[in-house]
Structure formats: C-alpha cells, structure tokens
Design a protein around this nucleic acid. Structure first.
Length: 563
RNA sequence: GCGCCCGUAGCUCAGGGGAUAGAGCGCCGGCCUCCGGAGCCGGGUGCGCAGGUUCGAUUCCUGCCGGGCGCACCA
C-alpha cells in the first residue's frame, strides 16, 4: 500500500517466517507442522519498541519449549538484511520480541508522505472488487429521521473508505415505492388534500400524521388545482400516489445532498415487480423445493436455511411480500456483478438478516457475500434531557431540522463518533457549541491553525521548502516524533476502518491527530524557529494538514481554512 | 419465551487473546510581550456476576443478572 510503516511490518513478518523455517530442526518443530497464527503489532508502550511480535509465545506449545528460549533461537536466525530499518531486536516480558527501528525511519516516512501528496493513504488492496453499499433506503412516506441520518453518515463513510482502498463502490438507495406503507401514504395524502378544500377528512389512525404530508398535498394542488377534487376515488388516489412518492423522494434526495451524501443508483422496488423479477425469484425458490403452500399463501422454508422461522412469499391475496421483493433485489445486485453486498440497517430490522441470507442460500448463492451493518438507535439530548419523539404523532426531528440546528459537519462527525452497534446519545448542545468541548471544532481548529500558519508564511514572503532539501533530521523532539508516528499510521488506519466497516475508527484517529498537532504547536515555534528547523517543521505541518483534510473528507466533513 | 446488540472511570464511549486497560466531558490546579488560548500541561481505587478454554481472558465459550431492539399473509 506504499506506506513505509506497512512495508517495514511486512518485511519483519517475512523475516520471522524465514527465521522460523531456518530453525525448525533446532526448535524441534517439524516441517509438516503448520505455522501458528502470530501478529507483528505496534505496541502500546513506546519502550516496547516500534513493532512487537508474539510469535515465540505461539510456538511455545508446538515446540514444547519456554517462549523466551524459542525467541532466542528465532533471533539467532533473524535476517536483519531483510529489514534494514530494524536497528535491534530484544526479548522481553513473557516472550515478546520487540523491534526497534533506526531513528531515521520517521524522517523517511514523513518525506514519503509529502511525496505521496493528497493521495497519501490511498491503496489498491480492494483490487477493484465490486462492492454495493446500500444505506438509508427510507420509505418515501415522509422525511428522514435520526436513524436514517445515522445510516446515511455511516453508509457514506463506509463507501468512501472502501473506495479509497481500491474497491469499486456503488452507493445505492432502495425505494420502497409499493405495498402497505404506500397505501397508508395515499390515504393520509387524500385526507390532507381534502382538508385543503375545507372538508373535514381525517388522516387515518395508522396513517402518516406528519405535517410534511400536508405540504405535499399543497404542492399537488399548486400543480393540479381542483382537477382531482371531485375525481373518482381510485383515479384520485393514483394521481396522489404518483405525485406523492416522487415528491417525497425528491425531498429525501435533497436533504441527503445537504448532508453531503450522493447516490449512484436509486433502485425502485416497483420496477422489480413490474419487470417480473420478483415472480422469477419466487419461481426459482419453488423449483428449488424451498417452498410450500399453507392457508392459501406460499411460504419459504427459511427455517431450513438458517432462519428461525418460515416466511410468506406470496400472500393468500396473491400479492408478493416485501420479503420476496427483497430477495429479488439482492439477487439483482449479484447479477449486476457485485461480489460484496453491504447493507446498513437499523437495529429494528436485524430480524430480517437471517431470512434474507436464507433466501440467497436457497437460491444457491453464498450468503456470506452479504454483510449487514446493524446500527443501534439514536437518542437526541437537548439541555441534558432526551428529546421526546413519537412516530405515531409525527413528532420527530428531521434531518433537515438537525442540519439547521447543528450544521452538516457536526452532524456527520457525531453520527460516526461511536461504533454502529453502540447506542448513540447525540448531544445537540455540544454539537452546536463553537467551543473546545466540541470535538468537531477541535479537529477543524487544528486544520484552520495550519492554514493560518501558511498565511503567515506568505505574509512574510516565504515559501514552503522543497522536500528533498529540508533537514528533517532536525525534527527530534518528543512532540515531533509522536506527530510523525501518527501520520505514519494513517494508511493502516484507513484500511482497518474500511475492512471492519468501522468509520468511527477514523473519527478517533483524526481526533488524536489533531490533539498531537495542538500539543506540538503549543510547545514549538514554527515560523521563526532557527533556519533549517523552521523549514523542517513547515514540512511536518504541511503533512499534518494533508492528512487532516483527507481523513475529514472520508468522513464527509469540511476542513476549513478559517473559522 | 426465543433471537440479535450492549453492560469498561461520576457521565458519554474507545479498545477487543498478551507486557502497567485509554479518551472526552465534569471537577481541581498551572501555562499567553510570541505563528489563532476554539489551545496546552498536570491530577484516575474502573472491564456486571459465576464457571470454562488458554502459557496468558477485560477480550473467546456457557450460564445468570441488567438495558435496548426484534419475533405480522408490515416494511
């Protein structure tokens, strides 16, 4: 992946394999015995070196020798030529081997970061594998709520991370534009429509009570006047539905764009029914012998394929279920060439995972190609109190309202602050605060400071030095070394966050990076330091700015020049 | 009842087989003639309980307790 740190890690790993192979006889470790798993990790404590491995401890059992003794034998055969940055290796603690790198490695890492430029951390490990990331996929029956918003932030950042790691990523929104939810929208819309003409129609008990439906009705009237006021029921409903769904999707799309989220594909469930894809999938399931009829409905033997109970595919009314369409939808994704399907769903949908995978399995697909990120619920806090929300009465905070209150950057940051499977307490006051407690401002402030440094530099008619003439070896203080080490971590952090589908790792990284920069900045003078040192520090500052920008971009957050 | 997720510092949460478990907030005390103080530095009795696997468990497994969410011919 072109990062010095990962190259060194790989070199050490290979040298360890070599050392073990060379010592199999001495260790009493037969060639046919498989090598146990081991790691070459970055130790938490600086005194344990730059890399550390547990290989000797893992070999203790198969060789039936004490770990420290195994470590000693391995080190005797360790080929330092294969990893020229390693200065020394030591056996420590219960049997760790700790590697210490030559001091110059950090300067070289920094130099390579500058040379990589804005693409630093980009990798090709994805090998252009085609990944489909489906997220939000909210019903087009209202506005986006906090759960949708969290899904949007998570899904978009996951997609961005994978893309940066060399996967070929498509962001997709599945539109549930058919079924009961839509019928309920129609009834609610009709009531609002009639209300506009002074008739005392009531939004049904199970309808959508939100006032946004009334807004949609008014927009419909603005377009069609009284044309449908006295039209036949079905005709009017059809017109309201067509307009209503389009209107809701437009609103959803707009609000997501304000959030910095754009999709490659908007996929209609209705199209799936119209094209016969749903019928086809059901027929395939029947042919596979995975179905049976019961009480007039067609059931899928989901229980036989890993789910906890069977599911209806075709209702006794003859209509296909959402579940049937969803199988067809995922089959469609696979047929379009995607080999990794990622869905971001709210916790309230987790029960759907096992049956969808069962469906894919029954059709002969590998269910493991589908990975569902389940995210827990969001609670909003204002003034230390949980904001009460009720879906039934339509009392919800919408994404649009959230953006108005705290802004896009804070919203994006807070939604990916925690792991998806943690409940998220979203503190609106904190997110809005333009102060040091607000982590978004803390990170952005670091970037603005850096931008300001370069403005100062320009005011003094100075320029950034050429990288190859900078005396990076002058960067030797604790603050400088820690900052460079953090910058050197970035490519591996990106890969880890991408593979684990865990953007919150990047949120943590960028916060720590900002912290290390602030510490450095507070102790050391940049502009005005001795000649040579000033240039070297400017290079460090430049690299920090680049990485901050990149990390924030992957999270969909701006990196301001001024605040 | 069954299934999934979560119980880590006063609060909100990271970490996720290894060597002394971290951060923010809150609280207390320091640091600006100087590149942005929206900053920095210092102050920490904590892995829900009980077994098991392992050289080693906060991490993996089982059970229990506590919380969230599911368990429709809804989506």
């Amino acid at each position: 992946m072109g990062s010095l740190k990962s190259e060194i890690r790989t070199a050490i790993t290979h040298a360890l394999y070599g050392a073990v192979d060379a010592t199999r006889t001495a260790l009493g470790f037969p060639v046919e015995t498989e090598m146990p798993e081991f790691v070459v990790s970055s130790p938490r404590e600086e005194k344990f070196g730059d890399f550390s491995t547990n290989v000797a401890m893992q070999l203790a059992k198969p060789t039936r020798r004490p770990p420290r003794e195994v470590a000693a034998v391995i080190l005797e055969h360790f080929d330092y030529q294969r990893c020229s940055w390693v200065e020394k290796a030591e056996i420590a603690g219960p049997g760790f081997i700790n590697f210490y790198l030559r001091a110059g490695w950090l300067n070289e890492a920094l130099r390579q970061i500058i040379l990589a430029g804005e693409g630093y951390g980009r990798s090709t490990i994805g090998g252009k594998q085609q990944v489909n990331v489906e997220f939000v996929s909210a019903n087009p029956t209202g506005l986006l709520h906090m759960g949708n918003a969290r899904g949007a932030a998570l899904g978009d950042s996951i997609a961005a991370l994978l893309s940066y790691c060399g996967f070929s990523v498509s962001r997709e929104f599945y539109i549930n534009d058919t079924g009961h939810q839509i019928d309920r929208l129609a009834a609610s819309l009709e009531a609002r429509y009639l209300q506009e003409f002074g008739e005392d129609a009531l939004v049904p008990e199970d309808g959508y009570q939100g006032t946004d439906v009334a807004d949609t009705a008014r927009r419909f009237i603005a377009l069609t006047g009284e044309a449908y006021r006295h039209a036949a029921g079905p005709e009017r409903l059809k017109a309201l539905i067509d307009f209503g769904v389009a209107d809701k999707i437009a609103a959803i799309r707009e609000s997501l764009e304000c959030f910095g989220v754009r999709y490659d594909v908007w996929f209609s469930e209705g199209d799936l029914h119209a094209s016969g894809a749903v019928e086809k999938v059901v027929a395939d399931l029947v042919e596979a012998g995975a179905t049976y009829e019961f009480e007039g409905a067609l059931w899928f033997k989901a229980g036989q394929y890993g789910a906890d109970k069977d599911e209806v595919l075709i209702r006794s009314s003859g209509a296909a279920t959402y579940f049937a369409a969803d199988i067809a939808y995922h089959v469609d994704k696979l047929r379009r060439g995607f080999t990794w399907l990622i869905n971001v769903w709210g916790a309230d949908h987790h029960g759907h995972v096992a049956r969808l995978k069962a469906g894919l399995k029954a059709l002969g697909y590998d269910p493991d190609c589908l990975q569902v990120v389940i995210m827990q619920l969001v609670r909003l806090f204002r003034g230390g109190e949980a904001v009460r929300m009720s879906k039934r009465t339509g009392e919800v905070v919408t994404l649009g309202e959230l953006l108005e209150e705290v802004g896009r950057d804070a919203a994006r940051y807070f939604f990916v602050l925690r792991g998806a499977d943690s409940h998220l307490d979203f503190d609106l006051d904190l997110a809005r605060a333009q102060s040091m407690e607000n982590p978004v401002y803390y990170v952005q402030y670091a970037h603005a400071r850096i931008a300001s440094l370069f403005r100062q530099l320009a005011l003094r008619n100075k320029e950034l030095p050429a990288i190859n003439s900078a005396k990076l070896e002058l960067l030797s203080t604790e603050e400088e070394e820690r900052l460079i080490k953090k910058l050197a971590d970035f490519p591996e952090e990106v890969v880890d966050a991408a593979i684990d589908l865990a953007p919150h790792r990047l949120t943590g990284y960028v916060y720590e990076l900002a912290g290390l920069f602030h510490s450095f900045y507070n102790v050391h003078r940049v502009i005005g330091a001795e000649p040579g040192l000033e240039e070297a520090r400017l290079v460090l500052v430049q690299a920090t700015g680049m990485v901050l920008r990149r990390a924030l971009a992957l999270l969909g957050i701006s990196a301001p020049e001024k605040m």
